[in-house]
Design a protein around this nucleic acid. Structure first.
Lengths: 162, 162
DNA sequence: AGTGAAAGAATAAAAGA
DNA sequence: TCTTTTATTCTTTCACT
């Protein structure tokens, strides 16, 4: 439950700079936003402790780590009368990268990555069994882009000097 | 086009550690994998230049940055005879976080984030117009998890001391 | 490829405005 | 809440294995 206080321009600048490179140093961030390093450090810690920033991830080539096959899996309860806690029941399956509840035919949308069609088959079986659901799977053939920055670069927002 | 040489245990360890915290210092990574800092630095640079790691992102609370509404948008060409370069045509829309081509009824699956239903309506209009497609939108009601590490923590793979 | 050491850079903590 | 200062830690480079 992140703090609901709105972000000021400096906070937004920090988040924006990190969105381009989350390994940027405090010194680099400080240059970007025009404050001292210490201030930026305090701001960043506050953003983290308020839950505005909840972690940092590398963008990893899926093939290089042996998971070239991505898919969307929509799931729906077999028995709509049963209590539904599919996200919990599936949390241990670490092939699942994301889990959203959705408005539509299905109850949830998962995004998964696996090594092979064979592994996908196995994973779908595990999902069905673990959560008592039926599934509808859509294979991703090619990823054009993903993990695009949630907050666009600050330099793109005010085309001043460029 | 990332290098296809397979990752050894050390590389995997580095990627795994970064997957938990992409802002980890080289010193921390070195501890994790049991090599010197210099070696880890050289390894990490190599992973980056080979395209195994292509960037770093913060995980940002979508509400805090004013984009509380997420949706999946499937798109299909209005005229299947036309050349199809939808991903390019849509790239400038920075509300689009991801774009995959898919096997299924539709041609592409987008994942988008916007400020409001009104903004979603506007975005869908822009997508239709820019790429000459029809769309099918599924709203995300709640996100249980996302951006889960592609590579699980090394400590979870060999439950030795814990 | 990996190590260790030395110089330079970044971070953390503290004090004051 | 920002800045400056200082101590500590991290990163970088390089000579060597």
């Amino acid at each position: 439950m992140p703090d609901s206080e709105p972000l000021d321009a400096v906070d937004t600048g920090i988040v924006s700079a990190l969105s381009q490179d989350a390994r940027a140093t405090l010194t680099q961030l400080a240059e970007q936003v025009g404050l001292s390093v210490s201030s930026v450090q305090a701001r960043l810690r506050r953003l983290e402790s308020r839950g505005v920033i909840t972690g940092y991830r590398p963008i990893v080539d899926a093939e290089a780590v042996g998971k070239p096959l991505a898919a969307f899996i929509e799931i729906s309860p077999l028995d709509p009368a049963q209590p539904d806690n599919a996200p919990e029941l599936l949390e241990h399956l670490d092939e699942i990268e994301a889990c959203h509840s959705i408005a539509g035919d299905a109850s949830y949308m998962l995004f998964v990555r696996v090594a092979s069609p064979r592994e996908l088959e196995r994973l779908i079986g595990q999902i069905r069994q673990a959560a008592a659901v039926r599934t509808r799977t859509t294979i991703a053939l090619q990823t054009f882009y993903e993990y695009r920055p949630l907050v666009p670069a600050a330099s793109e927002k005010r085309p001043l000097g460029r």
